[in-house]
Structure formats: C-alpha cells, structure tokens
Design a protein around this nucleic acid. Structure first.
Lengths: 195, 195
DNA sequence: TCTCCTATCTATAAATG
DNA sequence: TCATTTATAGATAGGAG
C-alpha cells in the first residue's frame, strides 16, 4: 500500500511511527468492525502505542471485560481438560463439607448482590454522563469515530451506546489489580444450592 | 476487495460467513502483527467466531492478561482525568452522586476482599472434591452436562475450548490474582449438585 | 472443508496543501 | 502539526479443483 513497499520492522523516526500507528490502527479497527458485522463474531482489541496511549475496539452488546472473561473461561476449560487427561489424583471431600462450602459461597454472593444492586444506579449515571460528555464533544466539532464500540483516551474517539465500560472503570480505579467481579451475578448463587 | 464490493451486513449463508471469518481474521491478525513491529505497539486481540471458536493475537514479551491488566489500569487512570473535565458540564447534584459512587464501590471492593479471603480456604476443597464427584457421577451412571453452548469440543484445533464448568474452578485456582467468581459459581452450580 | 487463483477492491506511504 | 490526495501494495470475494 502506499507509495512503495515498506519493510516490516520498527520505524525509527518517531513522527512517522506515530503517523503510521494512527493510520494502521484506524484500518484495523475498521476491519474488526466489519468482521463483527459480516461474520457475527465477537472481537475485542486493546492497543497501546509506543507513547503509551491506548485504544480499544469491542463488538456491540458486550465490553472488553466481557470478552476477556469469556476468553479466560475458554482458556480455563482447556486447562481443565488437560488437567483431567493428566489424571491427577485428588482427595475426596465429605458431603457435609461440600454443603458448608456451598452455603458460604451462597452467602458471599448474596452479600455481593446487595452491594452490586446498590451501586448499579450510580453506574448508569456514570455511563449517561459519559454519553453527555461525548455528545458535548460532538457539538464542539471534535472528530468522532462513526461506529460502535470505540473508546480511546485521546479525546478523539468516543463511547457508543452499549458499552458497559464506564461502570467497570469505576471499580478498576479503586483496585487496579482487580478481582473479576464482572459476571458474578446473584442468579448464579441460587444455582449453588445443593439438591 | 475481491471480485466485487460487498455490503457490510451479516452474511446469512453460514458457510460463506465462516470462510469470510477465517480470511478476514487472518488479515486482521497479520495487520496487528505488523503494527506491533512497525510502531512498537502492544496489541491484544481476542476473537470468537459465531460458532464459538476463539482466536487470539498478542504482541511479544507479554500475554493477553498482561495487556488486559495494563488496559484496566489505564482506563482506571484516565477515568478521573475525563471525570474532571466532565464535571464542568454536570450539575453539582450529579457530581455528588458520582462521588458517592466512588465510596460505594470502594466499600464494595473492601467487602469483596473479605469475602474472597473467607472463601479462599474452600477453593482447594472444591478442586479436591471434583474427582470424588466424577467418580460418584460414574457410579450413578449420569452423563456430564454440557456447560457452555459456545464451546466447540469436537477436538482438533488447538485453541478450541472444551469440557464443562469445572474448568473454571481450576482457572480460579491457577490464577489467584484474577479470581473468577462467575465461573466458580457456575461450576458449583452444575458440578457440586450431588444430592 | 481447504488451498490456490486473481480480478477487484481497500488500505495506506508519501506527497501535498 | 494536521487533513487531503494519490499512486501503489496489500487484502480478499468468488470460483475452481
């Protein structure tokens, strides 16, 4: 592409590197968006430029964290399969111990559910605030990516509807190396009950 | 590209959709690789096809989780920069509520930490109980429930996930810095139901 | 499915405003 | 610095085996 072939190696000139990063990033994001639409796929992309700025893409109806969770789950599944094949010998556990475990986890999830519900209202406000912010950006004539799923921290992109990221970001701020709270829905707690 | 322009909308024919997914995925992954080299960038890509198979790309010297962690930290940091800009355009009541949210989430995560610590003890027991459970299942002549609809466990491809929920308990154990309570609950729901 | 082919379409490097 | 233009390299849709 472009006026002449280029070798795929680090661009030493910082300006050219940044320009190329920006152009190619846009291209990849566009391709990702097309892929999600054409092929009904879920795609999550995180990029950090050499200057440390980040950009993301995420298919609609989810967020980066959701896809990452799904990915971890898939990885976890493969790991477990390998684990089984290795035929690791495990100790057994008394049934009443299992029941005790179940009750503890259930209680923990109930407690979590209360907390989650309590903060849910605020999360929505944050999201709506961001949308207001984005709209303001538009009104001020700042450039905007046309499609869904983009977030960047340069002020040039924007959030589109459907991304649940703002709420998650709040949680991440408090504990950067943060536990995976995302999918811990209370509904799951009910299913924990032993028969 | 190719023999004629195509409209960017879902490809209804499943075969064509899969073929296009495969081709375009390859293209995007290649572009991502070039970007990391040319521009010294960090890139992480996770894709799930409509059939549930997943593929990933990640720049060298790190892994998906590493980039995701960096991303979480980055959005955590940038949120408050954005927040302050946004605050100028929000009324004070809204802003007070946003502050309230911070405190709520903070409290929630502290609570979560306590809960996590409390349940940490049980994680090993969950794992250790699995073998006993499998044995019991066999004795009772029960079939294992398929846990995830998206998983393609027909064997073959290296990245395809498989098997059921217990994997999450394993993932939970091997990734203590990122406990996955969602998966844990889910796993417990389906695999600890002994009675 | 899978690979190869290739006419066409798209992305983009470099130039330009 | 930016956006825009333009000439080319690269990606790929559709078809064949």
């Amino acid at each position: 592409m472009g006026r002449g072939k280029i070798e795929i190696k680090r661009i030493e000139n910082a300006t050219n590197r940044q320009v190329t990063y920006s152009k190619r990033r846009t291209g990849i994001m566009k391709k990702a968006r097309e892929l999600t639409v054409l092929c009904d796929a879920q795609v999550a992309i995180i990029m950090f430029s050499s200057t440390g700025k980040y950009h993301e893409f995420c298919s609609p109806s989810t967020d980066i964290k959701g896809i990452f969770d799904r990915y971890q789950q898939a990885i976890g599944n493969s790991l477990w399969v390998e684990q089984q094949r290795m035929g690791e010998d495990l100790d057994s556990l008394e049934f009443d111990e299992l029941r005790g475990l179940e009750q503890n986890v259930d209680a923990a999830l109930k407690e979590y559910h209360v907390i989650t519900t309590q903060t849910e209202t605020y999360k929505k406000k944050v999201k709506h605030s961001y949308e207001a912010y984005k709209n303001l950006q538009q009104e001020l004539g700042l450039r905007e990516e046309p499609a869904f799923g983009f977030v960047d921290n340069t002020g040039g992109g924007g959030w589109d509807g459907g991304a649940g990221a703002p709420a998650d970001m709040y949680a991440f701020r408090v504990v950067p190396s943060q536990p995976n709270l995302h999918g811990m829905a209370y509904g799951a707690a009910h299913d924990l009950r032993l028969g």
